[in-house]
Structures are given as structure tokens and as C-alpha cells.
């Protein structure tokens, strides 16, 4: 993990704080999306990258966070900003029983069970109209209309918080336990690490962070409905961001999310008019190539030699 390189986060932080006021509304909006995905990818990485419990259903936490905020407004007329507390709380409360059930499964089966859980939650939110307004969704009044900077600094704070939480956790003994569970769960249990308990310790902050991003999404977009906050593509985007940047690395997910959002927007908005409707095809192809040739992500390939001391695979990465 980034040990002594304090100047890097400092520079990034200064750029992130000082640059946006000089940008137009569109670019501020893009940066808001970047920061939101940075927070979510970082959160996902805690459970998926460090603890090895890759979930294909993390959109559940995102949606629950968003609905935590939205339902406050829907039922009691409370400002959805309180969702910043209620959203993550709801996500965590629901995550705990989910974890208790799904953590009994391993590997691919865990991936699938999370997918099933997420889809189940989506269907419940669609059908239970009295609770969630169903497919009508929730429309709220926005606090700031044209002004984007308050939203930006809020989501920047969320992203920073998520990085901080992950950093502190990974510096503590929890971090070592998480990695040991990922590397070999049986060995970890043999050494007396209760794996379900520690997976839970990874799940709770993960659900909280993703839920927080969801609550922010509700406030920023001012409209949610189950199919926009629970779809498979949100879970997949989280994972693919992490894959792109590097699972199990500290800066990887943030980097991956940044590249993911900017690249898809670049292809859509700037290359799109030139290359036409194939822009998304190109994006998907890039994803396939990254997973095939950089399976540990851009940041992860640096540590490859260390991790692969028993592997036979040569290291092929530029900039050595």
C-alpha cells in the first residue's frame, strides 16, 4: 500500500479540491460521477478485492442507500439529505442477514448468490408499491439546481471518506485477516480467524460506503426507480472499474473508476459523433482486452512479480 508516498494523495487532493470551480457545469457533472464511482469501487474493493468475496450484487447496497434517502421523503417528507445517514444504515441493516446467508458459500457460488439476492430486492422494490412507490419511482426537489459545486464537494468528501476507511481498516489487523481469508480461507480458519465474522467486518463498511454513494445519487439525480438503481449493470460497473484499476490495491479501484467513467464518456460524447453507434462496442472490447491481458488491473500489475513468485506467467507490462 502507498506507504511513504503521502505527496501523491496530497497532490491529487489539491487538484480535486481546487480544479472544479474553474470548470463548466458539464465537466463538474462528469467529475461528480467520477467521484461517486470512486467511492463505490473503493467500497466494493474492500469486500471483493481485499477479502476475496467478489459480489455481483452490490447494486443492492447502492439501491438500498438511494431508497433509504428516497423513502424518508416519500413517507414522511423528511429531507433526503438525512438519507446520508439513513441510506447507509438501511444498506447495512439489510446487508447483515444477506451476509449471514451468503457467506456460507464460496467462490463462484457466492458471486451468483449475491446476484440472486440483488435481483430479489429489485423485484420486491418494483412490486411493493406501498413501500417504495414501485416503478413510479421517487422524485424529490433538488436543493441546488444549476449549482454543482456543493454536490461535487459532498461527493468528494464521500470518496475521501471511503478511501480513508479502507486505508485505516487495511492498516489494522483486520486488513491482514481479510487478505488471509482471500488467499486461503481454510488456512485462515485453521489459524483461528473466524472467517464469516471477518467477512462481515468487511461487508459492513462496504455496504455502508456503497449505500452512502446511493444516498448521494438520490439527492443529486433527484429521481430513482428500482430499475435504475438495482440493475446488474451497476454491480458490473463497480466490478469492472475495480478490475480495470486493480483489485486488492489501494489506489486501483479509484483509478479504475476514474478511467472507466471518463473513457465511456469520451467514447460516447466525443468519439460517438465520429464513429457512430459502435462507441459502446469499442468500450466493451476494451474491457475484454483489459481482463484478458491485465487480469490484475493497471495498478495491480506492478505488484505482480511479488504475488506471482510461484506462478509461471511472464510479466508483460509497459513502463518497467
Amino acid at each position: 500500500m502507498a506507504k511513504k508516498s503521502w505527496f501523491l494523495p496530497a497532490i491529487l487532493g489539491i487538484v480535486a479540491i481546487a480544479l472544479p470551480p474553474f470548470l463548466g457545469g458539464y465537466f463538474q457533472h462528469i467529475l461528480i460521477l467520477v467521484m461517486m464511482w470512486v467511492a463505490m469501487a473503493t467500497g466494493w474493493n474492500l469486500l471483493g478485492g481485499y477479502c476475496g468475496q467478489a459480489s455481483l450484487g452490490s447494486a443492492a447496497f447502492f439501491g438500498l442507500g438511494a431508497y433509504g434517502a428516497g423513502m424518508l421523503y416519500l413517507h414522511w417528507g423528511i429531507s433526503p439529505w438525512w438519507g446520508v445517514i439513513a441510506g447507509p444504515l438501511l444498506a447495512i441493516v439489510v446487508a447483515i442477514p444477506i451476509g449471514l446467508v451468503t457467506f456460507r458459500l464460496r467462490g463462484g457460488y457466492f458471486v451468483l448468490s449475491m446476484l440472486a439476492v440483488c435481483e430479489t430486492i429489485r423485484i420486491i422494490f418494483l412490486n411493493w408499491v406501498e413501500m417504495s412507490a414501485g416503478p413510479l419511482g421517487i422524485v424529490i426537489e433538488r436543493t441546488w439546481g444549476m449549482e454543482k459545486l456543493p454536490y461535487y464537494y459532498m461527493v468528494l468528501a464521500i470518496a475521501a471518506l471511503s478511501l480513508y476507511v479502507v486505508y485505516r481498516l487495511m492498516k489494522s489487523k483486520f486488513g491482514y485477516y481479510f487478505v488471509s481469508i482471500r488467499e486461503d480461507q481454510d488456512a485462515a480458519e485453521g489459524l483461528g480467524i473466524p472467517s464469516t465474522k471477518y467477512k462481515m467486518y468487511a461487508l459492513i463498511p462496504c455496504a455502508g460506503i456503497i449505500g452512502l454513494a446511493g444516498a448521494f445519487y438520490m439527492n443529486y439525480m433527484a429521481f430513482i426507480e428500482p430499475n435504475t438503481v438495482f440493475p446488474l449493470i451497476i454491480s458490473a460497473t463497480m466490478i469492472l472499474s475495480v478490475m480495470l484499476g486493480g483489485p486488492g490495491t489501494f489506489w486501483g479501484p479509484a483509478l479504475g473508476a476514474t478511467i472507466f467513467v471518463l473513457l465511456s464518456e469520451l467514447l460516447r460524447a466525443f468519439a460517438g459523433p465520429v464513429i457512430g453507434t459502435i462507441h459502446y462496442l469499442i468500450f466493451a472490447l476494451i474491457l475484454v482486452l483489459v481482463i484478458m491481458f491485465l487480469p490484475n488491473g493497471i495498478a495491480g500489475e506492478g505488484d505482480k512479480i511479488k504475488r506471482l513468485f510461484r506462478g509461471k506467467k511472464p510479466v508483460y507490462v509497459g513502463g518497467e
Binding site: 462528469i30 471518463l262 495498478a299
Partner: peptide, 22 residues
């Protein structure tokens, strides 16, 4: 070097948006 590269990449991507954005 690695982290520097990453930072550079991020800066380039941000700049790609930021410059026309000014």
C-alpha cells in the same frame, strides 16, 4: 514510477475534459 505513471494518466484524462471545459 508506477504511481507516477498512474497519476500522469489520470491527469491526462482529466485534462482531456478540463481544457475544453474552461
Amino acid at each position: 514510477v508506477k504511481l507516477g505513471l498512474l497519476l500522469g494518466l489520470v491527469v491526462v484524462l482529466v485534462a482531456a475534459f478540463a481544457l475544453p471545459g474552461c
